[in-house]
Amino acid sequence: MKKLLRYTTAMLTLTVSLNVMAAADLEVNTPGVNAIKSSMQARHAQLSAYYASGAVGLTADGMIALRDASAVPMAARQSVNALVAAENQDRGALYAEIANANAHPEWQAEIRSTFGQRWIQRAQPGWWVQSNGGWMQK
């Protein structure tokens, strides 16, 4: 009986320690994350106008997409296109990097989907976001 009790306690202890681990913060302060972050920060100055005009929208999978190029003068469409591609490359690298920095490369997809929800939730009113496969304005 005593053995059983000890076993149970050990189990509970294990549970508690695992809980603590889950509550811990995710490591996001690596040189890689910082490099990607500052590149995205610099790009945001150019992108924010396109979010506001609806030319670019936030997708459900944590990326951005050229939603309505006709909101942009013809001559600027190519550069918006390139901005979107560069931003998506950085976003992909960011999700992979966070997963790697936390020694769980397999978390990448979940990190991406968490980010996907958060980007959309934190988007400013007037920006276009993807929901249920369609575009809607916040």
């Binding site: 889950a22 811990a24 920060q41 968490t114 934190r122």
Partner: peptide
């Protein structure tokens, strides 16, 4: 729950989003 720390990930995402979007 541990397999993916959703709350921590949300917190981390919010921190990064705030910085990127200033």
């Amino acid at each position: 729950n541990i397999y993916f720390p959703a709350a921590a990930a949300e917190k981390a995402a919010d921190k990064i989003i705030e910085e990127v979007w200033q």
